[in-house]
Amino acid sequence: MLSVGALRAHLVAARLAGRVATPREKSLLSYRGFAARDPRQTLGLDPEGEWGTGELLRLMAERCGVSPDPGHTDGEDVIDPDCTVAALDAFAERLGRAAHDRVPVLLGTGHPHRLLGFYASLAAALSAAGCVILTPAYGRCVDMPTQFGVRRHSLWYVGGVAVVRPVDGDGGGPGAHTHSPLPVRAALAAAVEQGGVLPGLVVGDHGFICGAGQLGFEAIGLADSDDPAVFVAEAEGRVSVAVPLDDTVRSDYYRPLTRYVLHRAWLSQ
């Protein structure tokens, strides 16, 4: 069992929390985009509050531990590792309840190159505990806006985790990076159309949890300090748990988090 102290030390050493690589100017740009209701930043969430940039900065300081100083406009920023640990505990508790109740679970990630292993391990443990891991709309095409215009992607499941892949790509890698809520909307719509099982819990990041939460499904997941939509969704009750951490470090750096969460959720093999 990884102790809280050892987990905290790992978070800081791996720069998952503490001083993180996400630039302050990038985070502030995201906050301004969300305040302007840029869909690239709202991630499928239709916020109830006004959420100006000042309110967003205060929220992110509270939930993530970023600097609350509006005069801090560039350079490094921070994520409070104590915020990360507390959120991981809440995340594990919710996973444990899902496993105990054997609810159907849908998992998806917009960061497959970094986070697929984390979510796939959760999927395997939940399945072993008796949860149905849902894979609706497998292979369905989704037209998604990108920086190069609208591109057709297909919805796939790798290790029980939803990812998207460009239809006109070479098929290499686990999937494409995306913030879009369209994949989870397609998955949930397919489940409804087919009269299938609907998830009792959605686990993931970016548009997968904001999009699901907006539609009324309970959602939990991970979010970086430049993903204000996830923390707004948590503050407004559309996402149950948002775990603040850097979501772009090496994939193997998330393995201690996986072990910690599975142990806390009583899902360790």
Rank of each mutant, 00 (worst) to 15 (best):
M1T: 13
M1I: 12
V4N: 15
V4F: 10
L7Q: 03
H10V: 01
H10M: 03
A13G: 12
A14H: 03
A14P: 13
G18C: 01
A21P: 02
A21L: 14
R24C: 14
L28Y: 06
L28S: 01
L29N: 09
P39R: 04
T42L: 12
D46T: 15
E48S: 14
G49I: 07
T53H: 02
G54M: 03
R58Q: 10
G65H: 04
V66W: 13
S67N: 11
P68R: 14
H72P: 03
H72F: 11
D74C: 11
C83M: 13
C83Q: 14
T84A: 07
T84K: 08
V85T: 01
A86N: 09
A87R: 13
F91D: 01
A92R: 02
E93I: 05
R97Y: 08
A98E: 03
H100F: 08
D101Q: 09
R102W: 06
L107Y: 01
L107H: 06
G108I: 11
T109A: 08
P112A: 08
R114V: 14
L116S: 00
F118D: 06
L122V: 10
L122E: 05
L122G: 03
A124N: 02
A125H: 00
C131G: 00
T135W: 09
T135Q: 14
T146V: 11
G149I: 03
R151H: 00
W156C: 14
V158T: 14
G159T: 08
G160K: 02
V164P: 02
V167H: 02
D168M: 12
G169D: 08
G169W: 06
G171W: 02
G171I: 07
A176D: 03
S180E: 00
L182A: 11
P183S: 11
R185P: 04
A189F: 04
A189P: 01
A191H: 09
V192G: 08
G195M: 04
V197F: 03
V197G: 01
G200Y: 04
G204K: 03
C210G: 07
G211T: 06
A212P: 14
G213Q: 05
G216C: 07
L222D: 04
A223E: 05
D224I: 03
S225Q: 10
S225G: 10
D226Q: 08
F231G: 08
A233P: 09
S240Q: 07
D246F: 13
T248G: 12
T248I: 09
V249L: 13
R250M: 05
D252C: 10
P256S: 02
L257N: 06
R259L: 15
R264Q: 10
A265H: 03
W266T: 14
